[in-house]
Amino acid sequence: MILHSYLALSGILFTIGLVGVVTRRNIIMILLSLEILLSAANLAFVAFSQALGDLSGQIMVFFVMIVAAAEVTVGLAIAVVLVRQHGKSNADDLRDLRW
């Protein structure tokens, strides 16, 4: 397969995740869609790494996974605290900072 197939696939996956982030209102679902976005970026990184013959892209994927792990840990902790304090997990209902 040529690089363009993988790039098109990455774009489709990114679009699905983007629509998920915009349309879903549950904070857990927004975090799940963010994981799809990061995975789409990972696919583009690996495709470019193979096309250019350079391993740096795959190492970047490694770092993206580390950042995703840290992000998920903190994000889920925030979600647990929000549900514990407000009793709801809808992102539209959380407007304490708005005045």
Binding site: M1, I2, Y6, A47, Q50, A51, L52, G53, D54
Partner: peptide, 9 residues
Amino acid sequence: FSTAGNMRV
């Protein structure tokens, strides 16, 4: 670019 024929890395 072709990613098919020869695996570069």
